[in-house]
């Protein structure tokens, strides 16, 4: 499954994580990144549901 972003853009995403990755690994990961994009497209299509995580303050912090 082909990615919609360029390899350079993908390499930026990995570098941003602070990890140094061999070029061959980057090539391989770029080759499957399209699957991640496909998943993000699916969840972005979801409606405006209420926030899934709601912070509830503790009444008794002890």
């Amino acid at each position: 499954m082909e990615a919609t972003i360029s390899r350079e853009e993908f390499a930026f995403l990995i570098r941003r994580a602070g990890v140094t990755v061999p070029e061959a690994t980057l090539d391989e990961l770029y080759g499957v990144y399209g699957y991640i994009e496909a998943s993000t497209r699916r969840v972005r299509a979801a409606g405006d549901a209420e926030p899934a995580h709601i912070f509830a303050p503790l009444e008794d912090p002890s």
Binding site: F10, L13, I14, R16, A17, V19, V21, T25, L29, V32, Y33, I36, T40, R42, V43, R44, A46, D48, A49, E50, P51, A52, H53
Partner: peptide, 19 residues
């Protein structure tokens, strides 16, 4: 490493869709 590429907004979208 692939996990590092997922945007925070997509994680939030996924948790909404999960509900």
């Amino acid at each position: 490493l692939l996990g590092s590429t997922i945007a925070s907004s997509d994680y939030v979208h996924a948790t909404r869709r999960r509900r």
